[in-house]
Design a protein around this nucleic acid. Structure first.
Length: 254
DNA sequence: ACCTCCCTGGCC
DNA sequence: GGCCAGGGAGGT
């Protein structure tokens, strides 16, 4: 059984009535915790789905009541087991929502694509969905409706691994390139997980035990403007695509 | 298929 | 002071 205290109403903004987050979860039992892409999906007693997204700067901590709270602790979830879950989010781009089945079906969660790690579509499906599209492939990789889970860092890493320029029109990719892209998604995400994810300089993201993830030192493109490409030594370039910084190698990415 | 906005904090 | 930042939605 849980009880929720939402201290910053902005984090409950996705519910029509922000108080629903507290009221609908009060005294309920959690049945199952799942994930699709970057969305945490929790099945709650009473046919409710509790959706949690960390946005850019959100993190979840476990603590015991009374332990010193970090700044920007905006939601506290108490349990009958003593431990509490705290959502800390300086920029408040994260959110929590509690949906009925009807609300869930109307929400953007319903449009989420297959999870990039566990339900990666076959190359033929990728090819179909890319065909005729004029949008930059980088933009499409970030569109969670195609495949759910890639963010700005991993999109750049995937494109570097696949040897494809981020500005390429999605529809211009050959079957061979689509296949390389799909393979790269698996490789890059698994490597990222194996190394504990990408903790950047600000250490906003850390592993649950407080250590920094080690993938930053293994990045091949993201954040490496002017540094030598780890495949061929050419200096990595930075451009803006769809409003997001994009890093790529002008030599090994076509 | 683009832009802008939502926020706070860190860095130059 | 201005610029930048792991994301996503909404409007043109």
């Amino acid at each position: 059984m849980i009880h929720v205290e939402v201290r910053h109403p902005r984090l409950a903004r996705r519910n029509e009535h922000p108080a629903d987050v507290r009221d609908r979860l009060l005294g309920r039992v959690i049945h199952r915790v799942g994930r699709r892409g970057k969305f945490l999906l929790v099945d709650v007693e009473g046919d409710l789905t509790w959706v949690i997204h960390l946005g850019m700067s959100g993190r979840i901590e476990l603590a015991y009541p009374g332990q010193l709270e970090k700044p920007h602790t905006h939601v506290v979830v108490g349990t009958d087991r003593g431990q509490e879950m705290r959502m800390v989010d300086p920029r408040t781009f994260g959110f929590m929502a509690v949906y009925t089945p009807e609300e869930l079906a109307r929400s953007t969660i319903a449009d989420l694509g297959p999870d990039a790690l566990h339900d990666l579509p076959p190359t033929s499906v990728w090819a179909q969905r890319l065909a005729g599209r004029k949008v930059a492939i980088k933009t499409l990789l970030l569109d969670q409706r195609l495949v759910a889970g890639l963010g700005n860092i991993y999109a750049d890493e995937v494109l570097h691994r696949a040897g494809i320029r981020p500005h390429r029109r999605a529809g211009s990719l050959t079957r061979e390139e689509v296949n390389r892209l799909r393979t790269a998604v698996r490789l890059v995400l698994r490597a990222g997980l194996r190394w504990g994810g990408t903790s950047l300089g600000d250490l906003a993201y850390l592993l649950p035990d407080g250590r920094a993830g080690g993938y930053l030192d293994r990045l091949r493109a993201y954040g490496r403007e002017g540094l030598p490409c780890r495949r061929d030594g050419a200096p990595i370039e930075r451009t803006v695509i769809g409003g997001r910084s994009s890093f790529w190698c002008p030599q090994c990415q076509q």
